[in-house]
């Protein structure tokens, strides 16, 4: 009787190959991909406007999650949260939130949006007392 360890067919006598055996490497890869996407990625809520934020330096801090978000699309369309609004309405709504706690507003503008759409909003917010403002950018590579 030959040694099964010596000729490499130790399991050959135990079980017959079936068609699932050929799928196991693929399942391994798929599970690895699945684990990678689950760990490395982040989830964000879908936004009303399609916005591609500008890129900033790689040394920035993480963006805090809390606080209202003003969206400014490439064409100048503005939204506060999940509602499209005009500039004055946004300032009015945000101004109504000013209380004891300072309101920290994040402005997420498209990288191709023009300054004439963004800075007047910031100025109006500053005039209304909303002075804590952050522009949202994507951390550079």
């Amino acid at each position: 009787m030959s040694d099964p360890l010596a000729n490499g067919d130790f399991f050959a006598s135990e079980r017959r190959p079936d068609r699932n055996d050929r799928l196991i490497p693929m399942i391994n890869i798929v599970f690895l991909l699945l684990t990678f996407f689950m760990i490395a990625g982040t989830f964000h809520a879908a936004e009303l406007l399609d916005i591609e934020p500008p890129e900033a330096s790689a040394s920035g801090a993480d963006l805090p999650d809390e606080g209202p978000v003003v969206l400014i699309a490439r064409d100048g369309t503005m939204a506060l949260g999940d509602r499209k609004m005009g500039m004055d309405e946004i300032v009015a709504v945000l101004g109504g939130k000013i209380g004891d706690e300072p309101v920290e507003v994040r402005v997420k503008a498209d990288r191709a949006a023009r300054v004439k759409m963004v800075l007047p909003l910031l100025k109006k917010m500053a005039d209304a007392g909303i002075i804590h403002v952050q522009l949202v950018a994507v951390r550079g590579k």
């Binding site: 490395a40 990625g41 982040t42 934020p53 920035g60 993480d62 949202v136 950018a137 951390r139």
Partner: peptide, 12 residues
């Protein structure tokens, strides 16, 4: 999944 990491630019 998104891989973009957002960072704030403080203009307060």
């Amino acid at each position: 999944t998104q891989f973009d990491r957002f960072t704030p630019v403080d203009v307060s």
